[in-house]
Amino acid sequence: MWQRRQDRPLIAVTTSARSGWRVFPLVAFSLWLAGGRGVRWGTGRSADIDGVDGLIIGGGDDISPDLYGMQLVTSARLDPERDALERRLVEAAIARGKPVLGICRGAQMLNVALGGTLDQDAYGTYTASQRVWTILPRKAVTVCPGTRLAEIAGPDAMRVNALHSQAVARLGDDLVVAAHDRGGMVQAVERRRDPFALGVQWHPEHLFYARRQRAIFAALVAAAAAGRRSHGQLSAVDTMLEKTTL
């Protein structure tokens, strides 16, 4: 039975001013399939973390190295206003116990907001990594055993899309690597304690037809529902996964 709209956890989704109009509907659709509902945030829009149950930091432009104490060493399209907004939102979400999902740029922002750094020229560093630029699932990713991502999406290698040039370098506080590619480049990070936080370098919203990608949104919604009731988020995700496998 479909949930009533007001019963669905409300998830804020940050987008870029340029591409948000086409990205947000895909993310909102994935959230709806998972039992949640989305609201679009961005620069110039209202953004009150206390008014939502969870947060998705979406994809977009590269993150300025100013945020993690480095100098710009590669040509990049930056959005400083969005950087400031999203960093503040991630910090507030973690402080208030709201679950966070980072998508591509969002995974990088999650890492930076928690004190980590980025590799501005990831493919220059990881020369053995497969370089693709497509929304199609053509990049091979290895899921790290023993991680929550392995529980959520399964432990087998997966094919994902890739639209990024930066990647996680030094990990932020309380984050661990959850997936990498064949060249060793980080492809996902996760937080091992509440509140739930997961960052994936790919775009699961473009892969909504794949069960493993839908499970990522389902985990966020389960964590958001638990957080709304002041229940444990990671344990709620585990319970959801147990019911799914029955």
Results as ranks from 00 to 15, higher is better:
98 K>F: 06
198 L>M: 13
205 E>N: 10
141 V>E: 13
92 A>N: 06
215 A>T: 00
44 G>T: 01
94 I>L: 12
133 W>F: 14
156 D>K: 14
205 E>G: 09
92 A>V: 07
110 L>M: 11
102 G>K: 02
121 D>M: 07
190 E>F: 12
218 A>S: 10
73 V>S: 15
239 T>A: 13
225 A>F: 08
158 M>L: 12
138 R>D: 01
7 D>C: 10
243 K>A: 15
55 L>N: 01
114 L>T: 04
93 A>N: 05
220 L>R: 06
197 A>P: 02
12 A>I: 07
180 H>P: 01
127 T>Q: 14
208 F>R: 07
238 D>V: 06
10 L>R: 08
178 A>T: 02
203 H>Y: 08
79 D>I: 09
3 Q>L: 14
199 G>D: 04
150 A>K: 00
90 V>C: 02
143 V>C: 06
165 S>I: 06
10 L>E: 00
72 L>T: 14
96 R>L: 15
78 L>V: 03
95 A>D: 10
161 N>M: 01
204 P>G: 04
217 F>I: 01
165 S>T: 05
85 L>R: 12
154 G>K: 01
134 T>I: 06
35 G>T: 00
118 L>Q: 00
12 A>Q: 00
192 R>F: 15
51 G>D: 11
212 R>G: 15
21 W>V: 10
10 L>M: 00
68 Y>D: 01
83 D>F: 13
174 D>C: 11
245 T>S: 15
38 G>H: 00
115 G>R: 06
114 L>E: 12
170 R>Y: 11
184 G>L: 09
220 L>Y: 03
190 E>L: 08
236 A>L: 04
97 G>F: 09
185 M>R: 09
159 R>N: 13
197 A>N: 13
217 F>Y: 07
177 V>M: 14
12 A>Y: 01
151 E>D: 03
238 D>A: 15
211 R>P: 08
228 R>Y: 07
50 D>T: 11
224 A>S: 13
217 F>D: 02
244 T>I: 13
52 V>T: 08
174 D>M: 15
4 R>S: 07
109 M>K: 02
68 Y>H: 08
2 W>N: 15
50 D>G: 12
77 R>K: 13
161 N>L: 00
39 V>P: 05
158 M>I: 13
208 F>L: 12
154 G>Q: 10
11 I>E: 04
188 A>M: 12
95 A>C: 03
174 D>N: 09
67 L>A: 06
30 S>M: 07
229 R>Q: 04
208 F>A: 11
180 H>A: 08
37 R>F: 03
115 G>N: 08
54 G>C: 02
230 S>P: 04
99 P>N: 09
53 D>M: 11
108 Q>Y: 07
99 P>T: 02
44 G>N: 12
113 A>R: 05
31 L>T: 00
71 Q>D: 09
244 T>P: 06
225 A>E: 09
26 L>E: 05
79 D>H: 15
133 W>E: 01
43 T>N: 14
2 W>V: 09
13 V>E: 05
224 A>D: 09
66 D>H: 11
179 A>I: 02
15 T>P: 06
64 S>F: 08
240 M>P: 00
176 V>W: 15
95 A>E: 10
213 Q>P: 05
91 E>R: 06
51 G>Q: 12
196 F>N: 03
210 A>W: 14
160 V>T: 10
191 R>A: 05
68 Y>E: 02
155 P>R: 04
68 Y>C: 03
86 E>I: 12
119 D>W: 01
101 L>C: 00
